[in-house]
Design a protein around this nucleic acid. Sequence first.
DNA 1: CGCAGTGTTGACAACAATCAAACTACGTGG
DNA 2: CCACGTAGTTTGATTGTTGTCAACACTGCG
Lengths: 268, 268
Amino acid sequence: MAYSASPIIDHFAGPIGQARLSLEDVFATRVSEFCHAGHSIFWEGDVASDTFRVSEGVLRLYRILPDGRRAITGFAFPGDVLGLAFHDRYFYTAEAVTTVRLRRFPHGRLQALAADCPHLHYEILQVIANELGAAQEQMVLLGQKSAEERVASFLLMNGLRVAKDRSAPIVFDLPMTRLDMADYLGLTIETVCRAVTKLRQAGLVSLEGRHKVFLHKPDELARFAGQDDSGCPGMIKVTHQASWPRHAMANLNDELEPAASRTCDHSH
Amino acid sequence: MAYSASPIIDHFAGPIGQARLSLEDVFATRVSEFCHAGHSIFWEGDVASDTFRVSEGVLRLYRILPDGRRAITGFAFPGDVLGLAFHDRYFYTAEAVTTVRLRRFPHGRLQALAADCPHLHYEILQVIANELGAAQEQMVLLGQKSAEERVASFLLMNGLRVAKDRSAPIVFDLPMTRLDMADYLGLTIETVCRAVTKLRQAGLVSLEGRHKVFLHKPDELARFAGQDDSGCPGMIKVTHQASWPRHAMANLNDELEPAASRTCDHSH
DNA sequence: CGCAGTGTTGACAACAATCAAACTACGTGG
DNA sequence: CCACGTAGTTTGATTGTTGTCAACACTGCG
């Protein structure tokens, strides 16, 4: 079935072209699909034929090691787009934590659209760059933080998805199980459990039912999580800091000709 | 100094334009700079004004936590390009492990070139996508693997950078210190040391001087590292596997109209 | 109501971190 | 060229955090 004959292309083929097509526009033309909890959208190793945009629900993204260990590399929430890296196969399995509503768009056609629409290409690049930032943040968490710091970071991160204000209490839903958290944080269920208990005893957190979380003092939790970025030289963050020039580079914006080689000598 | 007046732009402005400009072409027009061991190219938090391509030498890329812990998120080797994520600030510090030769290209101008040259844009996207793949691999390593598995993975990964053949012994240089490895692998120097000793005693590895590494049985080392992908359902890899269709999706390449909503029910 | 899946807590074991000391490689200066 | 000093590395002893095993509690569903 030729793609060029499809009404989706007609939809985009305006008189001039697709000047400022956004990812959201692209997916908006597609039909909704549903995937029930526990079922998968695609598996690690599948031919990567489609990209997906989550409308509702949450997905876990994971890889399985040869001996059966499961590593969750991330979760996908409404608005998140999967499969943009344009590799020929998926690098991870995407499985529904809750019932998920999503739309798909063929890989190759999105690439074709992006080739004609710089803005779309740029948006795709931004999405991947953000994923990369999140992955690096997670590398710091997994490599350097203690069990309690990891759990605190995780709760805070999820809380800040809902409410950006760290000074006021935050309430939110956490649909995944303890095992999901454990496999995401590089811990066991028991250790996650104990960490949550400690945070509860410290008055920073409380729970209602299985999935409702209260963060009573998000700012204090942030300090606990090793994410306190107040005026300290080593900041780590998902949110970007506005100020902070630090040691400006000598050669900024210069337009030196290929003359003699230069040396960057920023001592530390 | 206006960029448009620079001979670099002249260089690219052929009669037709820049049809298939590659990243390598772009950086090739620039002057080489040198950065001596221990000095930094840029710091975490700096305004991200330039992108860099490493010609020679090795860089460590790291973030510092508020309490001083250092997390190395990666190393940059010859051919690697830094700063392509186009955020307004650098997310990590880039510091020379050895003397490094590199070329820089202004951030904004690269973006402008990319906007005019889809191939360049695509190449940038591929570089970031590969970084993302490496970051996910590292998340698996940090979250799920034991100390010895991490060290084995690290040695193998660096060996395979030089020689792709896992069946023959590999010899290569590892310029970074034990502390670098430790901060990259989420361990302490002592633990890295002991793991190396065990691998030596197992006859898989030997060392000469401080930086020369011999991998005597790379394939066995791979199995040891939890990277054995021979016919097992949970493969993890940097290199991509050729075969392996796995459960093909029902709706591949379909062109359904926005009719009734569908359900993906791939049980697992 | 009972069952199965999930979550919590405790006791214990194992792995990795910490503390400490000796050893090695490498660059520097005599 | 060798001696020395320093930074980096290795090994050992010990501690501590996290994983493992086990028992029990809670929740939601048939």
